Amino acid sequence: MFTQLNPPIPLTVKDKGDGFAVGVIDYGQEHHLIWVTIITDSGEIWCAPNPQVRAPGNWTMGRERPALDSAH
C-alpha cells in the first residue's frame, strides 16, 4: 500500500541527509515501512527502510536531534 503524506514529514535518511518524506510504502507485517523521501541538498528521491530514517529534533517535545549511528 502507498500512502501520500500531506503535508510531507521532515526526516533524516542515514548516509543521504535531511529531507521530506512525501509517501510511505507498506508491504505488510513482514517488512519495514519504506519512506519515500526527497533529500533537500541533492533533490534525490530515496526509498529508505524504517531503520534508516529518523525524525528531527523537536525542542518543544524535548526530543534531541537523533544520532543515526545505531541504525542498521
Rank of each mutant, 00 (worst) to 15 (best):
A67M: 07
H31V: 07
H32M: 08
A71Q: 07
T3H: 09
E64Y: 05
P49I: 14
K16I: 00
G62W: 01
I38S: 08
T60Q: 13
G57H: 01
V36W: 06
W35E: 04
E30L: 12
Q29A: 15
R65Q: 06
G19D: 01
R54N: 10
S42W: 08
P8D: 05
N50S: 14
R54W: 08
V13R: 01
W35L: 09
T60F: 09
P51A: 12
F2I: 13
V22G: 12
V53L: 03
H31P: 09
G62F: 01
T37Q: 09
T40Q: 12
N50Y: 04
S70M: 07
L5H: 02
T40A: 08
T40C: 05
H32C: 15
D69I: 05
E64H: 09
R65I: 00
H31Y: 13
L33Q: 14
S70W: 09
I45Y: 01
G23H: 10
G43E: 05
F20W: 12
I39W: 03
F20P: 02
N6C: 03
W35C: 06
V36C: 13
W46C: 09
G23C: 04
P56T: 06
T3G: 01
Y27T: 08
I9S: 07
Q29E: 15
D18E: 13
I9A: 08
I25M: 14
S42D: 10
D69R: 13
K16W: 01
D26G: 12
H32V: 11
W59E: 05
M61P: 04
N58M: 00
G62H: 01
Q52A: 09
T12G: 05
P49Q: 15
T3V: 10
I25E: 12
D26I: 06
S42M: 09
D26Q: 11
C47G: 15
A48Y: 00
H72W: 01
G23Y: 02
A48V: 02
A71H: 05
S42N: 11
G23D: 00
G62Y: 01
I38Q: 13
G57V: 02
E44H: 08
K16N: 03
P51Y: 11
I34G: 05
I34K: 10
Q4K: 10
T12I: 08
I38Y: 11
V13D: 00
N50P: 00
F2P: 13
